[in-house]
Design a protein around this nucleic acid. Sequence first.
DNA 1: TTGATTGTAATTAATATAGTTACATGTAAC
DNA 2: GTTACATGTAACTATATTAATTACAATCAA
Lengths: 144, 144
Amino acid sequence: MSISSRFAVGVHILTLIEFNKDGVSSSEYLAESVNTNPALIRKIIGMLKKAELVEVHPGIAGANLAKKLSEITLLDVYKAVNVVPENELFSVHENPNPKCLVGRNIQETIIPILSIAQLAMEKVLGSVTIEDIFEAIVEKEKQK
Amino acid sequence: MSISSRFAVGVHILTLIEFNKDGVSSSEYLAESVNTNPALIRKIIGMLKKAELVEVHPGIAGANLAKKLSEITLLDVYKAVNVVPENELFSVHENPNPKCLVGRNIQETIIPILSIAQLAMEKVLGSVTIEDIFEAIVEKEKQK
DNA sequence: TTGATTGTAATTAATATAGTTACATGTAAC
DNA sequence: GTTACATGTAACTATATTAATTACAATCAA
């Protein structure tokens, strides 16, 4: 199964807040660009807020970045929006038979390997910042 | 969300078939070690068969490996059991607003990055064989 | 006080997982 | 050929997650 699009939407939101830094990024404004519902945006914004990536206040329209663009990585967003349980990208079957040689050793054998695979993926996300996304969009737009 | 345990079960099955190479690895036998249902094992074995990792025949008890241990990687198993749609570990929201600068560029900007992250993870899986798992279990068992 | 916005709970439809039952199909052995 | 047994599948269930949506209390600015 795929990792929830909450992650991609989170990246979209943060990037758009920056492009709109001189305007007001309300949940309705952001929802229009993502093409979804303001309530969904508020839910994701709430997660980004808890992770201290954005600042937003009840009753006051608009969200703002809480950090510099270059200090927010895709990994930060990925962790903020909870798309993958900590260290459990791969699920492993519970209760293999301890009476079987394989059953009693399989978990401790494969979990470290799966963890390395997961970390390799997350390392890539950690190497890309929202600033990189911002700049890439500026470049792509120039070519149009 | 996590990747289905079908993958871990597939690895378990293949490893156990090797340990039991002189015996008959029926779906019931394998199910007992995994601690699940024979029908579920047969479903997964069916996928491994389609990927030409095991040999199994209707009416004849037992599954056997179709390749050498060292020629089956975890990536082969991962692909065989269909736990992740091809090149779509990450799902991306559909139909972002083309009228918005970010909306019309976000997909083509992040998809290649997400793809690199996915490939980094899969590369790790491709570097580990069932033989490695087999040997690791032999070692772990010695220490008990 | 009014009007607009955020925060959050509740609901729905669609989809995937994991477990289970049931049975048709296929094979070997008697 | 009949019996016993195993595989291959379809169908069904319970559970969980996603994404979309509605509704409304709490909060703040004007």
